[in-house]
């Protein structure tokens, strides 16, 4: 199962997705880290710039990544009760 690396930016709290060489605000830019996840974590953790670094499980779908947990889908889209703020990676109804 594919895995993604996510966290929140220290300065702003923004939700971030690891996009291969840098972070993106959008789940759709994420690049699967799979077996490299732990090594990446071990490198990024001591830098102390991204909070709540976590590896999460996702499914690859024709429309892109779909995090397995409701929590991560909410993080990727925004609060389901404020569709006006929704980020474009997933439709709000997909939460």
């Amino acid at each position: 199962m594919p895995r993604l690396l996510t966290g929140n930016r220290l300065e702003t709290g923004d939700v971030l997705w690891w996009a291969g060489s840098d972070w993106s605000l959008h789940l759709k830019d994420a690049v699967a880290v799979d077996d490299d996840g732990e090594a990446l974590l071990a490198r990024l953790l001591p830098e102390e710039r991204i909070n709540d670094l976590t590896l999460i499980d996702v499914d690859a779908t024709p429309d892109g990544w779909r995090p397995r947990s409701t929590r991560e889908r909410v993080r990727a889209v925004g609060p389901s009760v404020r569709p006006d703020f929704a980020l474009p990676s997933l439709p709000v109804e997909a939460i």
């Binding site: 709540d52 409701t70 929590r71 909410v74 389901s80 009760v81 404020r82």
Partner: peptide, 17 residues
């Protein structure tokens, strides 16, 4: 609830609505 809170298990606002 789960629309905002890291500790949540489920959404509460949509139920209330």
């Amino acid at each position: 609830g789960l629309d905002y809170c890291t500790l949540a298990n489920a959404r509460s606002i949509p139920i209330a609505q």
